[in-house]
């Protein structure tokens, strides 16, 4: 049995005539075919499974449907069609059972601002019929960092401390599954790393974690990921496998004049895409050009060409794609 099992889940917030879609799945009978395959039947939904003890990442930008998915799985809203189970319990029929066994950290800070750190934790423990002492082991590593401030009101905490308190509260009843909706959004890179360290420790204690994030670099810290955009999954697999399936050739290019380099690459018809990536520009070109195609691009040819049109110190090399490269590549072909 999968810990989380989702089949053909579909939800659209714009059921009016606006024609717009917001939610998860694919709007049925849509006339907007700009980015889609033809639909079969009603509301093609999304499906995926999460194994026990897995960290499963839902990775995509704002408005992709991440929060909608989390709210359905935590029994806070109803899907229009499709089914989902958590630990074998149905999100509609068995919602009470699910609420007992999941921990949920919503994207927006939702603890009681007027209660102290300690009072918040005690409150959540009490609601779930337990005590702080009973499950202290589970939260210890996280809670000790904010314990010196346990008499402080939650509303007066800094961002990083709020995040730790929220995680402690979501864990205090020893949930079997933890739902973390964008726990690191707006958090600086150092604190993000630290947060992911905490998640790895929780996984070692056997907790299944579904976590969403807009930061593509966090993908590699998950066991498996789903890349999501416009309510649809572009891909579900391990980060390593998704990277190995990258459909094009990927190069990183540099020259002394980076802005001009980007402009020139955009004008080149054989370059499929070119985007700034840190200190270089990532270029894709088709993996298998037609045989004997004399025009097909090579690093050598492109270097010569760019040098000829005035670029100095041109440096192009083949590189391993990151998940961000994969996301961009997949979302462009969609």
């Amino acid at each position: 049995m999968y810990t989380i099992e989702v089949k053909n889940l579909y939800k659209n917030y714009y059921s009016d005539k606006s024609g717009k879609f917001a939610g998860i799945g694919k709007k049925p009978n849509t006339e907007d075919d700009s980015n889609s395959v033809p639909l079969q039947g009603l509301g093609a939904g999304i499906s995926f499974d999460v194994n026990r003890g897995e960290i499963f990442g839902i990775i995509g930008p704002d408005g992709a449907g991440k929060t909608t998915l989390f709210r359905i799985l935590t029994t806070l809203i109803l899907a229009e069609s499709g089914t989902a189970t958590i630990d074998g319990f149905d999100v509609v029929k068995d919602y009470k059972e699910i609420r007992k066994r999941v921990g949920y950290m919503p994207g927006r800070f939702s603890l009681y601002q007027d209660l102290t750190v300690e009072e918040n934790l005690e409150f959540f423990a009490t609601v779930f019929n337990t005590t702080i002492e009973e499950n202290y082991e589970l939260i210890k590593d996280i809670y000790v960092q904010i314990e010196p401030f346990k008499k402080r009101r939650a509303g007066k905490l800094s961002g990083g401390m709020k995040q730790k308190l929220a995680l402690s509260c979501a864990l205090i009843h020893k949930p079997s599954v933890l739902f973390l909706d964008e726990p690191t959004t707006g958090v600086d890179p150092v604190s993000r790393k630290e947060f992911w360290g905490m998640l790895q420790k929780l996984r070692e204690q056997g907790i299944t974690i579904l976590v969403s994030t807009p930061y593509m670099d966090e993908a590699s810290l998950c066991d498996r990921i789903a890349l999501i955009q416009n309510g649809q999954f572009l891909k579900i697999d391990t980060p390593q496998y998704i990277v190995s399936q990258f459909a094009d050739v990927l190069w990183a290019a540099k020259s002394d004049t980076m802005h001009k380099l980007l402009e020139d690459l955009r004008k080149d018809e054989q370059v499929k895409s070119s985007f700034a990536f840190g200190d270089s520009i990532h270029i894709t070109s088709p993996l298998n050009p037609p045989e004997g195609d004399l025009n097909s691009l090579s690093i050598d040819k492109l270097t010569k060409y760019l040098t000829k049109i005035g670029h100095k110190n041109v440096e192009i090399k083949e590189i391993e794609p990151t998940i961000e490269d994969c996301f961009m590549n997949l979302s462009q072909t969609k």
Partner: peptide, 20 residues
């Protein structure tokens, strides 16, 4: 102030092209 938070990777890069 954090102008690109949460946007998809392509839009984020297009945004920087506007900055240039």
């Amino acid at each position: 102030d954090e102008p690109t938070g949460g946007v998809d990777p392509i839009t984020r890069r297009r945004f920087w092209e506007m900055i240039y």
